[in-house]
Design a protein around this nucleic acid. Structure first.
Length: 830
RNA sequence: GCCGGAGUGGCGGAACGGGAGACGCAGGGGACUUAAAAUCCUCCGCCUUCGGGCGUGCGGGUUCGAAUCCCGCCUCCGGCACCA
């Protein structure tokens, strides 16, 4: 049926039709046994929260789908799988608040989210779907854990850890932001608990060095990881301490200031402290102080402006450089889990030590002295970390602070056996224990006779019991489930107690991209052969919020799997793209902020899809702005893309109004080729927004050609088909429909992406800008092939240019062929 | 405090060191219509004596030529923040 020009297309029927057809034809399914021209693209898998997806979420998925469709049309065997990061606290909280079981709640949410993806017209290879909360998946978390346990990469230790009172569980360092729980925002407390850790610090150097080989990552993310790993070079120095019975080891980045070390400071948690306090006359007072510091939340102990407190332990050590005895203190500003948990204090050259020394009347000794600075320690008003020359240190005198001085001192320490060069990292081991139900059970049992015993592989998976009571009381519900806790020791057969901690959900997401390649394999974690052919992931897409967390853990676990011989690569995601977030004004906060349910500024895609179609939302979302930037949603601006698609539909309906033959319009053909070039280049660089602009320009030219009957029907039809193909990644439904109505039987996905012809891009005549002294004065036309001299002549021949040259002498003429002529004058001779 | 990133019309944004503002939204004018919607055409940075002048956060610099490169500021956003 050929409606008159005003008709609008039935997006509801068309979108439903194509969604059904794509699904029925299983268009996105990939047989991974064939890896020729493979392209593994991946969106960070989502947490199936109960909240419906809003248009802000859509950005991520729509962008991925556009990329996927483009790759397919370019002839790549693109794999685009999807799954569910489905363990985690919200499910358990829903159980507590609403009485629905986490498992049922989660599976229902997954069902709803899948529907939403479908309505957006997004294609995933659902045959690869994985759900991390299912035993088929999490048994392999347990398997990885056991392998790490065997190699000492998983271990248990008692430590001061971050405890979120609201989530009722401990958190990893990475999951604490400004002293608060990253998930819920509650203030984090300090607790001393026995917990499971993964030895990511063993991989610190490799994780850091690997960043240099990731040109496909945003610099920002690499920088954040570098800072997080926090590599420092310096030295470990031993201070003999006869009265203590053993030497005190410290880490310092400034061994060149050793002569100025006037006291040592231990962290209150330092292993030597207990012995020293035991013999101290004021031991009770000190013990009470230590207990208080240890229970202080990190943010208060380490945060800005936290007061420096400390106590003299009454013991002494010998400064190896000077041979002088110096006192040993404990203080809250020395952290137990960095370096050796002890420092040498050099108050003259370190601001923290300076403040502490002044507050407690401890001696200060200058090592570096600047001619324009204080000449004695008494004159100091603040530490001078990096000025002056060494004075009064024998052979070292005259050295300036810097690498050379450090190297000289390290050599000297090593020669004397007092210490050695050392590298230290800010990164801490990954705490994976969680005191919650809805996670992967850690597969070990505790036997009175044998101690901690790993669950044997053939007893995996350790399943989560379903019949658990969710009360919201503190303590893991698993620990109250007698049947779960009761176990048999795999080693001696005696009664044993099962571990009730579950794993951090970041374990699930640290290797899931490999499981997509062997999602149903019941025998092994994944097929290494397939993994090595398809992975690493060619393009990874997700939000910047995982710059450290997920992306660091995944890089770590990839290296572990590499060392296990399971994969041949060390970087899981050589190319990373962070899409920006969508923001909108929030009535609640009065500001433009990230779209989120809690801020009450979300926009539901449902009414948009109902009224204007998913294609409109898709085009708009991609047109909104550069995909890596934060962009503000506007309900009004949706009209533009909607009109664009309507125009396309009407244009397709009246394309045969163009005159049958005879008319030649090189402009239309040129515009067509230019659009192909621009869209292709833009998509290769993820510039979806400018690609849409290029398509809008093409439709403008084509509409005019049809309207003015200035091009042949054949040329118009060709331009239309090109437009439909180029637009398909953005608006898949309407383009498929037009394509089919034009007599094509295969899906656009299987059509070949158009190619442009450079020779068609050229124009016979070009407009050249003429400037006088850099100011635009005229535009002239020249042959595309015109020489520099031709440009010059035409430019100088322009009447307007001559007017501006009156009374001036031409000094030089700059010619940029085909673009610009700049006539430079010497100015008026006066 | 340290380290990044960003500031362009009323708005979203575009611009290999070479025409500032592509494309779109909003707005003005017109056509069609009994009317409205839709659609189509057209205008749309500021000032102007209509020659032109001024314009990409501010001030300098490099260059024939700077939104783009360099230096110094301002503002906003992000990361880290007693890590010895």
């Amino acid at each position: 049926m050929r409606g008159r020009a005003m008709s609008s297309y039935d997006h509801r029927a068309i979108e439903a039709k194509w969604q059904e057809r794509w699904e029925r034809q299983r268009l996105a399914e990939v047989d991974v046994r064939v890896a020729k021209s493979k392209y593994y693209m991946l969106m960070m898998f989502p947490y199936p929260s109960g909240d419906r997806l809003h248009v802000g979420h859509g950005r991520n998925y729509i962008l991925g789908d556009a990329l996927y469709r483009y790759l397919r049309m370019r002839g790549r065997r693109a794999l685009n799988p999807m799954g569910w990061d489905s363990f985690g606290l919200p499910a358990e909280n829903a159980a507590i608040q609403r009485g629905v079981h986490p498992r049922d709640w989660t599976l229902e949410n997954i069902r709803v989210m899948k529907q939403q993806f479908r309505r957006w017209g997004i294609l995933y290879d659902w045959s690869k779907e994985i759900t991390s909360c299912q035993p088929e998946y999490f048994r392999w978390n347990q398997w990885i854990f056991l392998r790490m346990l065997e190699r000492g990469l998983a271990y248990r230790k008692r430590a001061g850890v971050n405890w979120c009172p609201s989530c009722r569980t401990v958190l990893a360092n990475e999951q604490v932001s400004e002293g608060s729980c990253e998930r819920c925002g509650s203030g984090v407390e300090q607790r001393d608990l026995e917990q499971w850790f993964l030895r990511i610090t063993d991989y610190a150097e490799r994780l850091l060095a690997g960043l240099d080989d990731l040109p496909g990552w945003p610099e920002k993310v690499k920088l954040m990881q570098r800072n997080w790993i926090g590599r420092s070079t310096g030295a470990e120095i031993s201070f003999a301490a006869p009265s203590v019975g053993e030497a005190v080891r410290v880490f310092t980045t400034r061994p060149d200031t050793l002569h100025g070390a006037t006291f040592l400071v231990l962290a209150p948690e330092h292993p030597l402290v207990e012995g020293l306090v035991a013999g101290h006359p004021r031991r009770e007072e000190i013990a009470a102080w230590i207990a208080r510091v240890r229970n202080t939340p990190r943010i208060l102990r380490e945060g800005e402006g936290a007061p420096k407190e400390g106590l003299d332990l009454g013991a002494q050590a010998l400064n190896p450089a000077t041979g002088e005895p110096i006192p040993i203190w404990i203080a809250n500003y020395v952290l137990p889990d960095y370096g050796t948990g002890a420092i040498m204090a050099v108050p003259a050259h370190d601001q923290r030590d300076f403040e502490f020394a002044r507050a407690h009347g401890l001696p200060i000794r200058l090592v570096y002295v600047a001619p324009d600075g204080p000449q004695t320690a008494a004159e100091l008003t603040e530490a001078i970390p990096d000025r002056g020359r060494i004075r009064g240190c024998g052979d070292f005198d005259g050295l300036e602070p810097g690498e050379e001085a450090v190297a000289r001192f390290v050599g000297w320490l090593e020669a004397n056996g007092w210490g050695r060069g050392q590298v230290s990292y800010r990164l801490r081991d990954w705490l994976i224990s969680r005191q919650r139900y809805w996670g992967t059970p850690i597969p070990v049992v505790y036997c009175d006779a044998c101690g901690m015993v790993p669950v044997p592989d053939d007893e995996l998976p350790v399943l989560l019991p379903y019949d658990v009571e969710f009360t919201g009381r503190e303590g893991n519900p698993l620990a109250r489930h007698e049947e779960f806790v009761r176990a048999t020791c795999p080693r001696c057969g005696a009664a044993a107690r099962r571990e009730t901690d579950t794993m951090d959900t970041f374990v699930d997401s640290s290797w899931y991209y490999l499981r997509y390649l062997s999602p149903r394999d019941g025998q092994r974690i994944f097929d290494s052969e397939v993994a090595n052919r398809w992975a690493p992931v060619d393009q990874y897409i997700g939000g910047i919020e995982h710059a450290i967390l997920h992306l660091l853990y995944a890089r770590f676990v990839c290296r572990v799997l590499h060392d296990f011989g399971l994969v041949g690569f060390e970087e899981p995601f050589p190319n990373l793209f962070n899409q920006g977030m969508i923001t909108r004004f929030s009535e609640r906060t009065g500001r433009v902020e990230k779209m989120s349910k809690s801020r009450g500024n979300t926009v539901s895609p449902d009414p948009i899809i109902d009224e204007m179609g998913a294609d409109t939302e898709r085009v708009y979302t991609l047109f909104l702005g550069p995909p890596e930037a934060e962009v503000e949603w506007s309900d009004e601006a949706l009209a533009g893309p909607h009109r664009f698609l309507q125009r396309l539909w009407r244009l397709a309906e009246r394309i045969d109004e163009a005159p049958p033959t005879g008319v030649v319009d090189p402009e239309l053909e040129r515009a067509r080729h230019e659009a192909i070039q621009r869209v292709t280049r833009d998509l290769d660089r993820f510039k979806f927004n400018t690609a849409v602009s290029a398509l809008m320009e093409l439709i403008n030219v084509l509409s005019r050609a049809v309207e003015e009957r200035s091009a042949s029907k054949l040329a118009c039809e060709q331009a239309l088909e090109t437009l439909v193909q180029l637009l398909h990644p953005f608006a898949p439904h309407v383009t498929e429909e037009i394509w089919e109505r034009r007599g094509h039987s295969e899906s656009l996905l299987e059509s070949d992406w158009p190619a442009w012809d450079e020779s068609r891009l050229r124009r016979a005549r070009v407009t050249v800008v003429v400037q006088v002294d850099g100011k635009l004065r005229d535009r002239v036309e020249v042959d595309a092939e015109a020489s520099e001299r031709d440009h010059r002549e035409v430019a100088l021949g322009s009447a307007r240019v001559r007017e501006h040259l009156a009374g001036r002498e031409v000094a030089r003429v700059v010619v940029v062929p085909g673009r610009l002529v700049n006539v430079v004058t010497r100015g008026v001779a006066s």
